[in-house]
Nucleic acid binder design. Structure first.
Lengths: 141, 141
DNA sequence: GGTAATCATTAGCATAGCTAATTAAAGGTG
DNA sequence: CACCTTTAATTAGCTATGCTAATGATTACC
C-alpha cells in the first residue's frame, strides 16, 4: 500500500467518523442531558469509578470545569462523589443505577439508529465493515 | 451475518469512532479556536458557502448561537458575511483564504496523527481498513 | 513539626447553548 | 397598492461550559 493510499485512508476515515457521530448525536435529544454532561457520564459508566482529575483528563477539560459538571450529575442523582479511601483529598466519582440506566438507554438509541443504516448494506459489505471495525479498534487502543 | 453480529458491529463502530475523534481532538490545541468555532468553520470550508440557518442546522444549534459564532469568525477574518443575491434577508457565509488555510493546517495535523497510527498496522490490515472506510462512507452518506 | 506539593473547589471572567422579542425583507390577498 | 403574514437574521437576557487564579484541606517530605 503506497504512502499516498495510507494518507487517503486516514483522511477519509477522519471525515467519515465525524459524519457518523454528527448523525448519531441527533439521537441524544431525548436524554435530557447536555453533550458535556452526557459525555462525562459515559466515561464514568464505561470506564468505571475514577477521580475528578482523571475524569477531567479523559474529557480534555480542566478540573474546575469537570467539578461543576459533576455537581450537575450529582444533583440529578446520576453519579455520586465518594471520598477516596486512603486519600481524603481525592474523590471517587461513581455512576448510580440511574446514571447507568440513562446512559444505556441513550447508547441503545444511537446503536439502533446505526443498525438501521447497516441494514441497507449488502451482506458482503457488512462483513467487510465488521473486519474494518476490528482493525479500527486496534488503531484507537 | 446474524442480527446479533450486525448489532455487535454497530456498537463497536460507535465506540471506536468516539475513541478515534477523542484522540485526534488533542491536535486541535494549536488552532487558536474553540471547538464550536473550529467545527463551524470546517462546515463552511468543506461544505461551501451557505446561509446562517443552513450552518446552524448542520451544527445542530439554534440560529442565535450560530450568529454569535459567525461574529467571532468574522472578527478573526476567517469567514465573511455576504448578503444573499435575490433575498436581502438572507446571508451567505463564505470562508476567507485565512479560514481555509487555518482549517487545512489543523486537518493536516489530525490526519498526520492518524497516519502515524495506521503506520503500525500490517499491510493486510491497512487494506482491510481502507475497504471498511469505503463502506463507512456509504453508511454516512 | 514545619514546609512544600497535591486534589478539589470557589471566584470571576469569556464563550456557547437556549427561548423570546425585534428588525428587515418577501410573499400573499383583498 | 396597502395590509397582513411569513421568513431570515439579529438582539436581549438567561443558564451552562470553558478557562486561570486563588483558596481549603490533606498528604508527603525532611
Amino acid at each position: 500500500m503506497s504512502e499516498w493510499e495510507t494518507m487517503d485512508t486516514a483522511a477519509r476515515l477522519h471525515t467519515a467518523s465525524i459524519r457518523l457521530l454528527r448523525t448519531l448525536r441527533r439521537e441524544d435529544d431525548g436524554s435530557g442531558l447536555s453533550a458535556p454532561r452526557l459525555s462525562a457520564l459515559s466515561v464514568i459508566v464505561y470506564g468505571g469509578p475514577m477521580s475528578l482529575a482523571e475524569l477531567a483528563t479523559a474529557e480534555q477539560v480542566r478540573p474546575p470545569t469537570m467539578s461543576r459538571i459533576v455537581d450537575a450529575l450529582v444533583e440529578k442523582n446520576l453519579v455520586t462523589r465518594v471520598t477516596a479511601p486512603g486519600d481524603r483529598r481525592s474523590v471517587r466519582i461513581e455512576a448510580t443505577a440511574d446514571g447507568i440506566g440513562l446512559l444505556n438507554a441513550g447508547r441503545e438509541r444511537r446503536v439502533r439508529a446505526l443498525i438501521a443504516r447497516l441494514g441497507k448494506l449488502a451482506e458482503s459489505e457488512r462483513r467487510a465493515l465488521a473486519r474494518g471495525v476490528e482493525i479500527l479498534e486496534r488503531v484507537t487502543r
